[in-house]
Design a protein around this nucleic acid. Structure first.
Lengths: 217, 217
DNA sequence: TAACGTTTGAAACGTTCGTTTCAAACTATC
DNA sequence: GATAGTTTGAAACGAACGTTTCAAACGTTA
């Protein structure tokens, strides 16, 4: 049985958005590759912005459910900071892998969505994401902060975004990096291997000594 | 005396590209804000791609000169890994600050250029950058690698890009992050303060224990 | 000043984009 | 099987884009 129009559009859009970005992907590309009429997007999603938000929602929904469960468990532990942070990052990357079904374009989509939450170029998406997923985001930050006890609020804020950047860059460029790696080191690495490397680096960066808010000189 | 057309275009283009990205910035926006004729871009730079590459060159040229000097000095030191890495990251961020003249949009431009070197969306820029600045890039990687002696080549490759991602994300979103920080923590942070935080985290991430290339599970 | 190469200005070209239109096809209900 | 509501299809719209054209203005040299 043929998949419904809405799902076909979402599947294709999610792939193309992940591979080429929101602006660089046209509705004509999406609809033709999905085998549906051009007008179907505006009929079912109202506009291109509506489609982008729908893609974001379908992607984030299972991720938030999975992370919510993990955070509930981790939130009760308070003793071993190192271990909790390790479990937290491992869980976050595992959930991402599961949701992304190990395809690079879906992983890249995740990174693009996070990036959009901070960029002004997709203002509608920024507003949508911050309104929709702020609670989970804040819970994640709160648990992380509890296990970085040497920092004040602002120091943690900056540290958090350093960690986020490390993840986002690796995720969004995982395909290109894996390609370079295959050529330079003759090693065909898959996503689970790449992300495994990330965990201990994230933990170490979390545990790096706190620097006073002074100017770089 | 009025600045020459070419420089006015480059100044405006660099600002707009940094603030809104290459695709999202139109030649009409650049030329109108620069107060020059629309056709001037194609006359002086051949095409929009030519303009982007010219902007990249004008930005990277002084950066490469400054970094070359720093790397020559650092390349002779071999004893204290921690100290050399600290100096290296501090130097890199200081050079970036100098070149970017402390304006967020120029810092963001730097991050966008680095990102383009890994993205397929601006293929011409990727090729241009890798051909033009590969030597400096490789020298930087080589010196860094010498001070992360516990890693093999491939492990260093991944670690390097984790560090790069941390920098790129912080640099490209520094304006948005500073704005959030000002609201949440009533602290007006400037770029030198933000980047100072980054140095010790970069070093710690460099010194994080090496993980075998296993799958995340 | 005359002539020539360079630069600028205003307009248009051809494409692509998101969106809209509206008739045709389909589907569910009575 | 007729009807009403939903979905699809083909075409067009208006706007924005990069690029091109070509005459006018400028600057330099003889």
């Amino acid at each position: 049985m043929k998949k419904a129009t809405v799902e076909r559009i979402l599947d294709t859009a999610e792939f193309e958005f992940g591979a080429h970005g929101f602006v660089e992907t046209s509705l004509r590309t999406i609809t033709s590759k999905a085998g549906v009429n051009l007008a179907a997007v505006n009929y079912h999603f109202g506009s291109k912005k509506g489609l982008i938000q729908a893609v974001a929602n379908r992607f984030f929904e299972p991720l938030t459910v999975g992370m919510q469960k993990r955070l509930e468990v981790l939130g009760t532990q308070h003793d071993n900071h190192h271990q909790v942070l390790t479990e937290l990052y491992r869980g976050l990357l595992l959930e991402t892998l599961t949701i992304a079904q190990r395809t690079p374009s879906r992983v890249a989509l995740f990174a693009r969505l996070i990036n959009s939450a901070y960029s002004q170029s997709q203002g509608h998406l920024r507003k949508h994401l911050t309104h929709q997923y702020a609670p989970l985001f804040l819970l994640l930050m709160q648990i992380m902060r509890e296990h970085m006890p040497s920092m004040n609020h602002e120091q943690f804020f900056w540290r958090f975004h350093h960690l986020l950047g490390m993840m986002v860059f690796t995720l969004s460029n995982s395909e290109a990096l894996a390609a370079i790696c295959a050529v330079e080191y003759a090693a065909q690495r898959e996503l689970p291997e790449i992300l495994q490397q990330l965990v201990s680096v994230l933990v170490a960066a979390s545990e790096a000594p706190v620097t006073p808010m002074e100017k770089l000189a």
